[in-house]
Computed example of a mutant assay.
Amino acid sequence: MADHPRRVLVTGAAGDLGRVVLELLARLGVSVTGLDRHDPGDLPLERMVVGDAGEPSVVRQALPGAEAVIHLAAIPAPVLGTPEEVFCGNTRATFVVLEEAGHAGVRRVALASSMSATGMAWAGRDLHPAYVPVDERLPLQVEDPYGLSKQVDETTAEMMSRRHGMTTVALRFPRLGGPGDKLQETAKQWADEPGSGAAELWAYLDYRDAARAAWLAISRPLTGHHVLFVAAPNTLAALPTEQLLDAYHPEAARTAALPGRSVPVDVGAARRLLGFSAGHVVP
């Protein structure tokens, strides 16, 4: 393989993040095959395969020539399907994509995990982190099918790393959005109702930074399996972080100072391993 992959398969290519990933790869001169359940007809890629990422024959059709995979295909919330559809669909797609990629000789995979793997975001009751800022050692408390699917996806990637000798990076994304749309709406919501962001630790990331993290995950010199939190350095909340934590997570141990609107998420591992830091910050 070249210093970085020249041909990449992107699953979930027609999604909001998938589109931004495709735009970034096009600017980098990377040849892309997209895989999605539908083809909108306007994606910047070389080839599009329409089908379900959970079907081995579909994935095999999409893989020829790929040197790396960015796996984004998933049902992105537990309210978008039955528990069985969400959990079984997400975990099947991840298993199939990584298993077929391994057999095809792919040795680099980035996959979209989520801060929901902590268990807090979609729980039916208020849950609190053991400590803040949270990091990759945080004990998980999953109670919902989506968070569980992401926890299993991370474990699947770890197994595939051993099984096929591939490097896998699971990126725990927070609330995602773009300039002037979802992030601004979220910021207003969390300003009006600060408690509504507590389960997500008021964290966010611009689609453009999420796309760059995915690219770094398949192009930086790494081996083995890694789970990494990625987030912007500040929160989308209007209040200081320490004040929010006092109000909504008072029992969480504080392992570091969080001045101003510092995000209570430790992204140090992503910085060390990927050289990642967010470049698009909501003031």
Rank of each mutant, 00 (worst) to 15 (best):
A198L: 05
M1Y: 02
E67Q: 13
L43I: 08
A66H: 08
A217R: 02
D192G: 15
A257E: 03
P56D: 14
E242I: 03
V49K: 08
L148V: 08
P145Y: 13
A252S: 14
L22V: 07
D206W: 07
T168N: 11
A231F: 09
Y207N: 09
W202A: 13
W122A: 04
A252M: 01
T255H: 09
T241K: 06
L245G: 05
A130V: 01
R19H: 11
G65I: 00
S31L: 10
E100S: 06
T241Q: 06
L138E: 04
A157P: 01
E84D: 15
S161V: 00
L258A: 10
E55H: 11
L28R: 15
D16A: 15
E23G: 13
V49Q: 02
V134H: 08
G197N: 09
P283R: 12
K150Y: 12
L17I: 12
I75V: 12
L205V: 08
A74P: 03
A112V: 02
G34E: 01
M166Y: 01
H226E: 08
V106G: 00
A77Y: 00
H225S: 15
R208F: 14
E143S: 15
S161H: 01
G224D: 02
G147I: 06
N234D: 12
D135Q: 10
H280K: 09
P194K: 09
D144C: 13
A203G: 15
Q184S: 08
G34R: 06
E67I: 01
G41D: 04
G89Y: 04
L9M: 03
R7Q: 06
T167I: 05
P179H: 01
T167C: 15
A121L: 09
V142C: 14
T167G: 11
L63T: 04
A104I: 00
P264G: 06
V96D: 07
G18V: 06
V132F: 10
R271P: 04
L80I: 08
S31Q: 11
A187C: 03
F276V: 09
D36T: 04
L72M: 13
P40A: 03
A93P: 08
T156F: 03
L35N: 03
R125T: 00
V58L: 10
V263Q: 01
R271Y: 02
S57L: 10
G178V: 00
M120L: 13
E99P: 00
I75Y: 04
Q151I: 13
G29F: 14
P250Q: 05
V265M: 12
Y248P: 13
E46C: 11
P240H: 04
G65C: 05
V58E: 05
P133K: 03
A210L: 06
A66G: 11
P5F: 08
A121E: 03
E242Y: 10
V97G: 12
R6A: 14
G41T: 05
V59C: 12
G165I: 00
L239N: 04
M166F: 01
L43R: 07
A93D: 07
E200P: 07
K150H: 14
L274H: 05
S277D: 12
Y248V: 03
P40M: 01
S57D: 14
D181Y: 11
E251K: 15
R163D: 05
P56V: 12
V267S: 10
R6D: 03
A13Q: 02
Q141K: 15
A278T: 00
P259M: 10
A214G: 06
N90P: 00
A53H: 09
T223F: 14
P64C: 10
G268P: 10
